[in-house]
Amino acid sequence: MARATALCKTYGVGEARVVALDRVDVAIRAGELTAIMGPSGSGKSTLMHCLAGLDAADGGEVWIGDTEITALRDDELTRLRRDRIGFVFQAFNLVPTLTALENITLPLDIAGRTPEPGWITRVIDAVGLSDRLRHRPGELSGGQQQRVACARALAARPRIVFADEPTGNLDSRAGAEVLDLMRQCVDSFGQTIVMVTHDPVAASYADRVLFLADGRVVDEMTGPTAERVLERMKRAEGTR
């Protein structure tokens, strides 16, 4: 679905030079929820931004489906994001002047597309906010806002959804609601999702976990549980 080969990204020069991604190879499988974990500064966000065409890599290739995106122009990337990629950020996901419903349909409206009949309703049902659709983001709780953001990410039926710490600002209950929702999207709609997280419990919702350290993929785990992930993280701490 999405893959990167020999992906490199460095920031700064000389003394201040930071290698954020060091020849990373990853393949995201279709119809799976993939979690990316790793210590702070290990390059998780950078990897995700490069995969999603938000940031340009210094070297290597990124494929979304059968499109190689590192060579695309800005307008082509914009179209790619609009039509094939969905995003959920850690916070400030919604346009404050638009209602929840308007935020959900925003990518479609921007593209000037009409949603497939029934799809939006299904997404909204899945998100469980049918009674809050006319509210502005300011009138929603943090968890509700993130659920609206998920619905927005799904509305345009993207090939792949990227979520950078979607539950990072939420308490465990609100976080669980969002994670349940993402899991459900994968299971019932076959959605491909990539999620960056620090939380072993969140990672346990995933089909597969990729571990990053110092800009490299150092490990991966299929069928994770919270305990195994936590153990893996402790081991990593220990080896440092």
């Binding site: 609009r82 039509d83 969905g86 995003f87 400030f92 921007i110 927005r152």
Partner: peptide, 16 residues
């Protein structure tokens, strides 16, 4: 700024 960035991220082009 943030809001505009968000719009761009979800697919609004510069023209829009």
């Amino acid at each position: 700024t943030r809001e505009i960035g968000l719009l761009r991220a979800v697919g609004a082009d510069r023209g829009q």
